[in-house]
């Protein structure tokens, strides 16, 4: 692997995987703390009709209308869940289940009936994404990383994810204190006039945006893994929320890089002739990080607790 092929073929894929992991991983911290871990999973189902409608209206797989559609779909679902929970007097989990399956079914129906199915929105794509298809043929050397006009030729999915990541970092930085408060004590937040429902809804909208942006590149399996694994790993390593966010970001990016190389070089090293999905491998590496943390974490790890019990 020489420098130019690395830049042209591997680098954009690594960027895609790492950026997707980073954005989802950061937001995942608050989902895990609010015991909404499966929200990422659910949201990636809910947004499907929004994505399809965005596609049908504009006729392109361009990201902006799709993301708008997805955001609107996420908002409608949050509203519907509240409505069903109140009118039907059922527990939130049941209300979520009803809304998510219905929205996903509506999305599939739209997809089948409208003929959008053949274009870009097929099942395999939805599950695994197409990380490997990202290329940057204009690159001729590492110097190009500093040249804006050549950087502009990076695949649009990379720039889109970069923009979404910036938005996510800004969201978490600006609303860090509010997110922390409503995740810990929503009732108290309301007595301060900091609406827990408003902050919670904003979080879900950002989750939807992150899910849609990442979905196209890495597929829904990795999206779900990335909402949970880095945050859950980081949660085991520290008792400070700030530190937890940094660790989760590190785990997310490291999973993106290591996962890609494991998929690219792993089969060769093992001497088997087969190809491995990079997105899948990234999720596997994130899972490994989590396993190691469960075993070795300073206070919450299995070994640390064993040692404590013995003393």
């Amino acid at each position: 692997m020489d420098a130019i092929t690395f830049l042209q073929f591997d680098f954009p894929s690594i960027l895609l995987g790492s950026l997707a992991a980073l954005g989802c991983g950061l937001l995942g911290n608050f989902l895990v703390l609010r015991r909404q871990s499966l929200m990422g999973d659910a949201i990636s189902h809910v947004v499907l009709p929004g994505i399809v409608l965005g596609f049908l209206v504009t006729g392109t797989v361009d990201s902006l209308p799709m993301m708008l559609g997805a955001g609107v779909a996420a908002l409608i679902s949050v509203g519907l869940i509240e409505l069903i929970r109140r009118l039907g007097r059922v527990e939130p989990g049941a209300a979520m289940g009803v809304v998510f399956t219905s929205m996903f079914a509506a999305g599939v129906l739209l997809l089948e009936q409208s003929g959008a199915g053949g274009v870009h929105l097929d099942v395999e794509h939805a599950l695994y994404g197409n990380l490997e298809s990202a290329v940057w043929l204009e690159a001729t050397g590492f110097g190009d990383l500093l040249r804006p006009e050549i950087l502009a030729d990076l695949p649009v999915s990379v720039t889109r994810l970069a923009v979404v990541n910036l938005a996510i970092v800004a969201f978490v930085a600006l609303l860090y204190k509010e997110l922390k408060l409503v995740s810990f004590d929503p009732l108290f937040a309301d007595t301060l006039g900091i609406s827990s429902r408003l902050v919670g809804t904003l979080l879900i909208v950002m989750v939807a945006v992150a899910a849609v942006a990442a979905f196209d590149a890495v597929g829904s399996i990795l999206v779900i893994a990335m909402f949970i694994c880095p945050a859950a790993t980081a949660r085991l390593m520290t008792d400070r929320l700030g530190t937890q966010l940094w660790i989760s970001a590190g785990v997310a990016v490291a999973s993106g890089i290591l996962g890609y190389f494991a998929a690219a070089l792993g089969p060769q090293l093992l001497g088997v002739d087969m190809s491995v999905s990079a997105a899948g491998m990234i999720a596997v590496v994130a899972g490994l990080f989590q396993t190691v943390a469960m075993l070795l974490a300073p206070r919450y790890g299995v070994l640390a607790r064993r040692r404590l019990q013995r003393v």
Binding site: L175, K177, E178, K180, F184, F188, I194, D239, R240, L241
Partner: peptide, 23 residues
């Protein structure tokens, strides 16, 4: 929850601090 005693007490000041700003 990953917070210290000081973190939790500081939450009582969040209204005075105002939206978007850090303690």
């Amino acid at each position: 929850f990953p917070a210290t005693a000081l973190d939790v007490v500081t939450m009582g000041l969040y209204r005075q601090i105002g939206w978007f700003r850090w303690p």
